[in-house]
């Protein structure tokens, strides 16, 4: 048996899945070839990790933690029950109202002052006759008093 052939069959040899005749051939090769024997040993050790990992220690608090998680998820579900309604209906409604209010305020601020009111004020000012105090009373008269 060639080394390459053995490399293809080694895992099945280690698992005892080869026919009897091939098992014999692999055994013979391993006893003769040091390199393949070293690889076989390495492979056996690595695959042996699987056996060691098979039974992890049982966590004694597993059920307690599970129960707490179950209760937490239950209360979370109750809390968020009304949230979709809030998100889908109330939120857009509130944003729309805010937008409309903003637009209204914007229009009000941007509107030019009424021209009618300005004209009325101007006319009222024109009614008052211009009084030139200096013409009716000279400065000398004023100082004399």
């Amino acid at each position: 048996m060639k080394c390459k052939t053995l490399h293809n069959k080694l895992i099945f040899f280690l698992e005892g899945e080869l026919p009897e005749k091939e098992m014999g051939l692999v055994k013979t090769h391993l006893s003769e070839c040091g390199t393949c024997a070293a690889f076989a040993e390495e492979m056996r050790k690595t695959l042996g990790i699987l056996e060691a990992e098979k039974s992890p220690a049982v966590n004694p608090f597993f059920y307690t933690r599970l129960k707490a998680k179950l209760e937490n998820q239950g209360s979370e579900q109750k809390q968020v029950f009304w949230k979709p309604a809030l998100v889908r209906v109330l939120q857009p409604a509130i944003f729309s109202i805010l937008l409309l209010v903003g637009i209204y305020i914007g229009i009000k601020i941007g509107q030019p002052a009424s021209t009618k009111q300005y004209t009325a004020t101007l006319m009222h000012n024109q009614d008052i006759p211009y009084l030139n105090e200096m013409a009716s009373e000279t400065i000398e008269t004023s100082l004399m008093e």
Binding site: E53, S55, V58, Y63
Partner: peptide, 18 residues
């Protein structure tokens, strides 16, 4: 439920660990 968890906890954890 408790009994179910106790019976199958090791099996499920081991599978997930794999």
């Amino acid at each position: 439920f408790k009994e179910l968890v106790e019976n199958y906890q090791k099996m499920v954890v081991n599978t997930c660990f794999g």
